[in-house]
Structure formats: C-alpha cells, structure tokens
Design a protein around this nucleic acid. Sequence first.
RNA 1: GCCGAUGUAGCUCAGCUGGUCAGAGCUACUGAUUUGUAAUCAGUAGGUCGGGGGUUCGAAUCCCUCCAUCGGCUCCA
Length: 645
Amino acid sequence: MNIKITLPDNSMREYPKGSSAMEIAKSISEGLARNVLAAKVNGEVRDLNRPIEEDSSLQLLTWTDAEGKSTMWHSSAHLMAEALEFYYPGIKFWVGPPIQNGFYYDVDFGGQAFSADDLKKIEDKMAELAKQSNAFVRKEISKGDAVNYFTERGDQYKLDLLSNLEDGGITLYTQGNFTDLCRGPHIPHTGYIKAIKLTNVAGAYWKNDSNNPMLTRIYGITFPKKSELDEYLTMLEEAKKRDHRKIGKDMEIFTFDDDVGPGLPLWLPNGGVMIEELERLAKKTEQRAGYSRVRTPHLAKESMYKTSGHLPYYEDSMFPPMECDGEKYYLKAMNCPHHHKIFKELNPSYRDLPIRLAEYGTCYRYEQSGELFGLMRVRALQMNDAHIYCTKDQFAEEFNAVNEMYLKYFRVFGIEKYVMRFSTHAPEKLGKKYVDNPELWKQTEDMVRQVLIDSNIPYIEVPDEGAFYGPKIDVQVWSAIGREFTLATNQVDFAVPARFGLTFRNSNNEMETPICIHRAPLGTHERFIGFLLEHYAGNFPIWLAPQQVSILPISEKFNGYAKKVLQLLRNSDIRGLVDDRDEKIGKKIRDAEIKKVPYMLIIGEKEEAENAVSVRQHGKGDQGSLPIQEFIDRVSKEIQELLDA
RNA sequence: GCCGAUGUAGCUCAGCUGGUCAGAGCUACUGAUUUGUAAUCAGUAGGUCGGGGGUUCGAAUCCCUCCAUCGGCUCCA
C-alpha cells in the first residue's frame, strides 16, 4: 500500500506505507539525504527514521532550518550528558533544551565540584563519542515502566517530569550508554556533530524558581562543520568589541566608581554631550507634540507612595527610606505620582485636556546586586518620561500620536529591527493581579491593538503580562551584536488616577477620572546610550558624536590658525578640539580615527593661506579642501537632515 | 539575593607550583624633530598587586572575610 507525501513545493510523491523521511530524502537526492537532520511531518518535527504511516505533508529539515538546528542542539545536549555521566557517574539531569544559540543541560552534581576548567575534558569526550556515530534510539514506554525505571535509578528529577506526563506517548531516547526521558526528536546518530564548544557553566534555579536549590547549567553549541564553529567564535569576538561597556570606556562616555556605589553611573564629559543632545531632541520633539515640561524632586514622603499603591508592590525595588522630622522619605523609583500631583494642582476642565506632562526624571531603583549590568541595569536612571491625561474619547488619538513619536525616533536612530510587545491582562486574575474593570480593560486593549494594526507596526501580544493598572507595550530592539533589549515602555493606566482622586470637569459639569498614558520612547539615558553604543559601535551620527571635528595642524607653526578654526566651529555650535601635540600628522590622524571622530580637518601652510581646511571623514578618507565657512555649512546641514528624519 | 569565575600602573595585559616578581606595551610628561592623510626617536614618571585579617623566616602568589566586576539564574526601563 502506498501513501501520498506532499513536499513544500506542493509536489506529491507516492511511497510505500511505513517509509521513513530518511528513505524519502534518499529518493530525492543523495546530497539532501546527507544534510537532512529531522523531518516535519504534518507540522510536527520528528526523527528521520520514524515510519510514516499515512498521507502527509513533509518538510525535510536541514541545518539552514531553525528546527533543524534545534534538533541537532537537542541531540548535542544528550551527547554532553553522556560525556558528563562518563566522568561523573551518579549525577542527575533535569532538562537539556536547545536555545537560540546552542543548548544547555541542567545538572545536579550531587556535591561534586564542576567548574569551567572541566569543560575541555567533557568537550573531548563528546568529540570521541560523536565519532562513534551512535544512533539515537527511540523507545515508547508506559508511564508505569518509566516510573519504575527512574525510581530504580533514584532520579527524582525525571520522576518529577513524569508526574506531569500522561500515559501513552512517553518516550525514552538512548544513544551509546546514555538514556534519557525525552520527547525528541533527534538527529539519526551522533556522527552529525562535527564541531563542539562548551561555552560556559553557570548556576540556575531548579524550575527557574529562586526558592528552589540551584543546579549547574552547562551551555554549549555544536555545528555540522568545523568552519562554522570558527565563524561563530569569530562573531563572538566581534560582539565583545562592540560591548557598550568596552566602547563606553574607550570613548570615555561613562564610568563607575567604588566610592560612588554599584549601579550609579558617572557620566564623563563625552557622555554628558550625548545626554544633552538626546534631551535636546526629546524636548524639541515633545514641544512640537504639545507636551509641557515639569520638574519634580527626587524624593517624596511615604504617604504618597501609599496613595499611589506602589509601596506594597514595589518596596523591595526602592532604596530604603530615610527618616527625617519623624517622616519617612523615599527616593523616587518612578515619576508618575509626582506628575499626578501636578495634574491635581492644575484642576483642569475637559477643555484643558489632554494634558501632557514631560520630564527627564531621575529615578532610583534598588536592583539586586547580581542584576546590575553595565549601563543596561543601573540603580540611578534618567527617564524620558511623560504622562498624558486624556478622556476616553481622546485616548485612541493620543495613543496613536505616541506611537508616531516612537516611529520617528526609530528613523532618527536607524533602528530597523524592533517589535512591540503588547501585554494584556488575564480575565481570571481580575481583582487580583489586575484592576477589576473588565470593560475598561477590553476597551483600552482593543484601542491599543487597533492602533498597532493601523500603523502596521510589528507586534506580539502577550496575555497576562500587563501592568496592574492597564495594558502596556514594551519596545524590544536588538543591538548590532544581537542582544535584545527592552528599550522603552508605553503603558495605559485607568486605575491610578482614581486612587489619586484625579478628576476633570466634563462638559456636563460632572467630575470624571482621566485615563493616563505613561510613555518613555527614549527609555532611560542609561539604557538608551548603552544601546546606542552597541548599535553604532561608537561611530555615532555627527549630531550625537561627543567630538564632531578634530583639527589637526601639520606642525606647531599652524596651531594658531587651528585655534582660529576651532573658534569658528564653536561659534556655529560645532564641537571640536585641536590636536596640538608635537606629533606627525599620520599619528594625529590615526588617533582621531581610533577615537571615531566624524571629521578631521588637516591644516597646514596651504589651508592657512587660503582660509580653508582639508577635510577627512572618519572611515572614508580624504575629502579634499573646502573654505571654512563651506565646511561649517555642510556640517550644520548634515546635522539638521539627520534630526529631521 | 543565589551559583561560578575574576580583581596587578590611567588603559591592555605578563608574573607557573610562596624567596631579585613588582614588569611590558600604549597613554601622560620632558627633550630632540617641524613634519601633508592610520604609529618619529630618546628619556622620565606611574602600582602599599581591590580592602581587611590570617598562615609563614618570607605572600601579588596559600587560607578566611568583605567589596566590586564578569558569566548565568531570578528580576526589570
């Protein structure tokens, strides 16, 4: 009897019932059969050698398919487990999934020491086992037999997994001397794994719960070709060079100091310039969009955070309070309550709405010490914050305008890869995790969703991740080295204004509670500049570059003219420096290139005589000579165009 | 906070199992040189080897502890 197999190109072929995907691959081409790792049968990824019993659609997965990679990495995790068990008999395994780059396995070493120094011998053992081309053998087993098997081995972890599995469809996989409870699928045999790198070892809580004991998590990655591993390692090296902590140090953007404290960044002069430029951009953009700027203190009394409802939920993330005149004061971890107080003072009528209060507010959050990470996770942060108070009728338009602002910023910064993470509520948790107002949840979520759809913004919807007071959108971006960041956040709040008793007088002369939109398109200076450092690898667009022009006199004789040029640049708000060291021009150029200064002006006898400058552009080389004023006009125009994107 | 690792001049790093181990390059400073598109030469200066305690005749090197950083976990802008 034959079955019909439909391939991705919609062609159909007939095979005897019970043919395996591998046999089908061989029938198509030898080359394909050599490269195929797993098969997608009717949408389910499966082992290649499992017989196919009915008419099916079939996709043969290779290394170029994400699912092909995952299958290989999952199998690699098993291979690693086998190597680990060889050296550390009796250790217990939790789970070993494939991840974005490679795989890990969580291991309980039962008190035996294991460190990064031991990775090499495991790698070598894995290579040895891979060469044996041991088949991954799938075996269906009843739940009872499985429980017996793992009880006998005293494996509480696999028993825990089993307790959540239904009888039927439970499978074991064995390769060489290692057997694991596993749903599969796997590659046919270990010989497919040609290059192995165990990247690091770390602790991880069992079931990701910090109340549970820690297991040892070992990360690794494998490839079907040695050359691909080399490429991957080179890529990691490159990523290291773009790390914002390294660039930030090299370019003197920021630093930390033991005496100041962990997570409290000091912005060096170059970082100060970037902050000034970002704030200038934000203020201008917000001014045009009808925002009002306010300023609020860095602390407030305990009572305000009780009113806002932040204290009970947020106390652990706030710095401990300071006692003063018999009162407790907290450093602010968010600007919202202060802004709410301002709204209240304004006592507006519906004719005054929307009211948009903006502030680059400084907040302090007591992040756990292990969470601090360069500029990305800090304890003092300045947020591009604003709160928009509007009526229900105004909400969609206001929300859309906020989105437009996000998109403008993405253009200015050349951010092409982004996703909006739209977090909604979970109906069954109304009244617990979420404010109990189903109509408003539905209404605001529908409006937000519609704005996202209308503006054609890529987004993913995540249920049960909203704030307690409303749905929110987090902007996910990816830095050039592939690190994912939540850059900015945008939240709808229909609850806290009520807690503060915020009202406006509507057209019927009744008091009504406004909806509040929290938004911070540029996130915080800390995280945003951290992101920009990696995004641009320090090669900032000229408007943002701490130093825009380096003036390089050929010899000391021209230092005077160089200073004159510098003053002209400064008069036109262009940031420059004269390199008047007693060095040769080649050296000065080299140093300016390394510092990634966008423009270098080489100045000698000819330039001084002609009131000109010789322009060299970073990364592009000699651009010829220009009259000074022409250069200034060109730079000013370039800056304007970048900001008007 | 938890698991693991690391911490030597402003920067990048040597310094193996305790005894000329306090070093190199870059930077900075001084002098010579006065230079045309990615490194001129020479000299000088710089560190109680993260802090504190201990073991030892002797510790950057071994032990304890604290701090910070890094890789993860948890958490998040």
